[in-house]
Design a protein around this nucleic acid. Structure first.
Length: 264
DNA sequence: TTCCATGTTCCGCA
DNA sequence: TTGCGGAACATGGA
């Protein structure tokens, strides 16, 4: 689930449900796996009695500013999500629970424990520490900046798009969608692409991510011309009808249309 | 039982 | 030295 569009949708969900409510109680489970650089004690102390005032997203990271100062950092790994509901209703695999007034709570749920929760002074502190590149949808990442960051890369096109230090926010699923529309084979060397191909990648990166957010990152709502809803089964290319191919690129499964995305 | 999964980090190697 | 790609991490579903 959680690439840039998914995290943006969760951000809007948090904004709509949990902002400006006083946190009455904090519960944490599996803190050894989930907490990163913060103790259960300190996290609880900082959160209890505070409010979430506003949110910020950078790539796949979500931040919520605390009225007590500092920011709550949420990273969702491969299986994390947020769930706002009644306080007595505990979702399976909950890791952090913030209880508000009127019997409501926000749950951070993360089945595979690959996500992280932390406390930071500023989002920029974390972004620098982790070494994240510019957010894929930020205005700072204009065409020229994209060119500069990508052109000298020695890795494959898909791996480069997924490299959070180059551009933050794109993961396995959306890299495939972007490469599909730009008609670039995921195994091509990024540095070997022509300038038209790089332009197409830039354009499709912005378009695909924006459209995915508009679709609430829900594959059932995505356009018929997209391949994301066709992952998993031996689907057909929605544009030319040829069969979709699966290949391994740097250990990840990539889906592509071999007819429209040529290797050379 | 074995393999695979929307992510990140660490390590070996070029 | 830099950076790429594979393995490990923890869990559960096919």
């Amino acid at each position: 689930m959680p690439e840039l569009p998914d995290v943006q949708v969760m951000r809007e969900y948090l904004d709509a449900t949990s902002l400006h409510r006083k946190i009455r109680a904090v519960r944490i489970s599996r803190e050894r796996d989930i907490l990163d650089g913060v103790s259960r004690r300190r996290l609880t102390d900082e959160l209890e009695g505070a409010k979430l005032e506003k949110t910020h997203r950078h790539g796949k990271y979500l931040f919520a500013r605390l009225s007590s100062g500092g920011w709550l950092m949420l990273h969702f790994g491969m299986t994390g999500y947020l769930d706002f509901a009644k306080d007595d209703d505990l979702p399976e695999h909950w890791r952090l629970l913030l209880s508000f007034d009127r019997g409501r709570r926000l749950a951070y749920v993360c089945r595979r424990l690959l996500g992280k929760v932390s406390l930071v002074d500023e989002p920029a502190t974390l972004i620098e520490k982790v070494g994240l590149g510019p957010d894929a949808l930020s205005d700072d990442l204009d065409r020229e900046t994209f060119e500069e960051r990508v052109i000298e890369r020695r890795g494959k096109a898909k791996s480069t798009l997924m490299n959070q230090g180059v551009i933050a926010g794109i993961g396995n699923v959306y890299s495939d969608e972007i490469l599909f529309h730009a008609r670039v084979h995921p195994g091509r060397a990024m540095g070997g692409l022509g300038s038209k191909e790089r332009s197409a990648l830039y354009r499709e990166m912005k378009r695909v991510l924006r459209k995915a957010i508009e679709c609430r990152a829900d594959s059932e709502k995505m356009p018929r011309s997209w391949i994301t809803p066709r992952r998993g089964d031996d689907g057909r290319c929605p544009v030319c009808g040829g069969s979709l191919e699966q290949v391994k690129i740097s250990g990840r499964t990539a889906y592509l249309c071999a007819k429209r995305q040529r290797k050379s």
